[in-house]
Amino acid sequence: MNSFSYVRVRDVSSAVNEAAMDTAAKFIAGGTNLIDLMKEDVARPDRLVDINRIPLNRIEQTSDGGLRLGALVTNSDTAYNEQVEKRYPLLSRAILSGASAQLRNMATNGGNLMQRTRCYYFYDTATPCNKREPGTGCSAIDGFNRMHAVLGTSEQCIAVFPSDMCVALAALEAIVRVTGKNGDRNIPFADFHRLPGDTPQIDTNLQPDEIITSIDLPPKGFADHHAYLKVRDRHSYAFALVSVAAALEMDGNKIKEARLALGGVAHKPWRNREAEALLKGRTVTPDNFQAVAEVIMHDAKGFGDNTFKIDLAKRAIVRALKHAAQMEARS
């Protein structure tokens, strides 16, 4: 770990001031990813701004009937929150399928959004990586790339965003509330994370002086018809090869609205609204689900070791939709 200074802040404006004063400073909350990256010398902040004592640790109703998840509520407390379990079970499922109980007790909601890729070349400072050291090249494109992206890649980077929680948040169309030097703004979840393009070192559209204050869930929780399917090398405590968050609104056997978000396949949770629209008014049949899966994965590109993800994702989409549609029948 490099040498750094440490400061503890107790309110949002002090945090914003600290970040605005020193662009090499980093916020620390749970620390489950940042401390690991510092131990590996991938992250070398010269100052840590400890935000844990800022009172952003509550889950509360919003005036529109949704739910506000404080940025500093832990992943565990969010997943087991009574309101989240009842109204947004898709989110609970997604959170509990990630990491371990210990890590979920530490990791915060804001930190989950800000975690970096687990690409092994990003972690290995002896190898070139455009995300870690821009302009050095991507070692994964012609290297071992079993875990890497098949959608939205660029010639600079094929890393995947590793979160499970964020896949559910994408499907639920959460709003990320942030505060910076220029005040507050709301970022729709789909616009929070970026595709790599020519600047893979920038993961999100959060500005350097901005801090996440909450993640707001809209009233619609899809509690009756949802599924989070995670396919991975180990049954527990492993990152997704492919994951699918499916959320449906049903009218009998007909689909009124469908949301699908994919994890493990891209640099951000992957949505395809055109494909989702194809399901509107359709009945629950394997053919209809297969057609949507084909559209979503149409432009997918494999890099050798990870090419299997394209077919795997199609099958996972079909299965997740089936589970979501059949929920009522099963209960």
Binding site: G31, T32, L48, Q102, L103, N105, M106
Partner: peptide
């Protein structure tokens, strides 16, 4: 319960 190695 937490991982003490990942906590300052």
């Amino acid at each position: 319960r937490i991982n003490s190695c990942m906590t300052l």
